Structure formats: structure tokens, C-alpha cells
Simulated scan of single mutants.
Amino acid sequence: MALKRHGFLLSSLAVGVALGALALSIGFAAKAYPHDATPTAAMPQGWSYPFSCCSGFDCREVPDASIVEGARGYEIRVTHELIPMSDPRIKESPDGRFHWCSVAGAADGRTICLFVPPRSF
């Protein structure tokens, strides 16, 4: 009887270790693509944010209405931050949509990068 319990404990431990390893591998797999933009019609495979702009949670697509293009540059409506068109944080958006990268992904954070649609979109 003691051997059966011992064998059950060992097999339970093995299953636990296997499940833990699986959970870790899934967790790492989910984190393997933290810099990717959501696929769109223009870019069905999506695209990757440059590491210099994104630490895995800093960047996201934003509605056109949240960015105002003016003669002096781009205004981030939520923060009222004005980014001149010549600012190196301005990047051309591969999918023709606005993407905003802010410090720690905060809605009120300072802009790291702003991906803007090319004028042809």
C-alpha cells in the first residue's frame, strides 16, 4: 500500500512538473511577439514595432480621431503633446494607421514613437 501511494505521489509530481513546464512555455510563446501590430487589410500578417519604440506593452493602434495633424505637427489629443513633423519619434506607419507608443503604455504617458499614415493613404 505504501508503494502505491509513493508511486501515485511520484506520478502526480511528474504531471505537475509537466503542466508547469507547459504553462511556462505557453507564457514564453505569448511573450515572443510583444512588439507586433494587429494584422490589418493593408498588412494581413501584421508588422513588428521597433524595439526602440516598444518594450512589449508600450505601443498600440489608436483611432484616427486621437491624433490631430496640424501645421506644427501631430497633437496627441489625450495628453495634448505636440510632436513636430521633423521629430525623430515620428515614423511612417506600414499599415496606414496611427500607432502610438507611450511610456509604460500609459494613456497619459510621454510619447516614445508615433506611427503615422503616409500621406498617400
Rank of each mutant, 00 (worst) to 15 (best):
residue 18 A to R: 02
residue 28 F to Q: 10
residue 31 K to Q: 13
residue 14 A to H: 02
residue 106 A to N: 02
residue 28 F to D: 03
residue 107 A to D: 00
residue 101 C to F: 06
residue 39 P to C: 07
residue 93 S to P: 12
residue 107 A to M: 01
residue 23 A to I: 11
residue 17 V to P: 11
residue 101 C to P: 06
residue 38 T to D: 05
residue 15 V to I: 14
residue 88 P to F: 03
residue 52 S to V: 10
residue 37 A to E: 11
residue 75 E to P: 01
residue 74 Y to N: 03
residue 103 V to F: 04
residue 31 K to E: 07
residue 80 H to M: 06
residue 4 K to F: 02
residue 78 V to P: 00
residue 70 G to Q: 12
residue 100 W to G: 00
residue 41 A to N: 08
residue 24 L to P: 00
residue 61 E to V: 03
residue 30 A to E: 14
residue 79 T to V: 01
residue 107 A to C: 00
residue 4 K to T: 06
residue 60 R to H: 02
residue 31 K to T: 04
residue 72 R to E: 15
residue 81 E to H: 03
residue 76 I to H: 02
residue 75 E to N: 04
residue 64 D to S: 13
residue 68 V to T: 13
residue 111 T to N: 04
residue 18 A to H: 03
residue 60 R to L: 02
residue 99 H to W: 06
residue 42 A to M: 08
residue 30 A to G: 11
residue 20 G to K: 03
residue 63 P to F: 03
residue 29 A to Y: 14
residue 64 D to N: 13
residue 24 L to V: 14
residue 59 C to N: 09
residue 77 R to P: 00
residue 118 P to M: 07
residue 67 I to V: 11
residue 92 E to A: 05
residue 36 D to W: 12
residue 33 Y to A: 13
residue 78 V to E: 13
residue 22 L to G: 09
residue 61 E to C: 02
residue 37 A to Q: 07
residue 43 M to A: 14
residue 9 L to F: 13
residue 52 S to H: 06
residue 5 R to V: 08
residue 66 S to I: 00
residue 69 E to G: 09
residue 7 G to L: 10
residue 60 R to F: 02
residue 58 D to Q: 13
residue 45 Q to R: 09
residue 81 E to P: 01
residue 119 R to H: 10
residue 42 A to N: 15
residue 82 L to P: 02
residue 1 M to W: 04
residue 39 P to N: 09
residue 107 A to V: 00
residue 32 A to Y: 08
residue 32 A to S: 15
residue 21 A to T: 13
residue 8 F to L: 15
residue 68 V to N: 04
residue 48 S to Y: 15
residue 77 R to Q: 07
residue 6 H to I: 12
residue 100 W to M: 01
residue 11 S to V: 08
residue 69 E to M: 05
residue 115 F to L: 15
residue 91 K to S: 10
residue 98 F to S: 03
residue 108 D to Y: 10
residue 1 M to S: 14
residue 70 G to F: 05
residue 86 S to W: 01
residue 109 G to Q: 00
residue 21 A to P: 05
residue 86 S to G: 15
residue 100 W to Y: 04
residue 114 L to V: 01
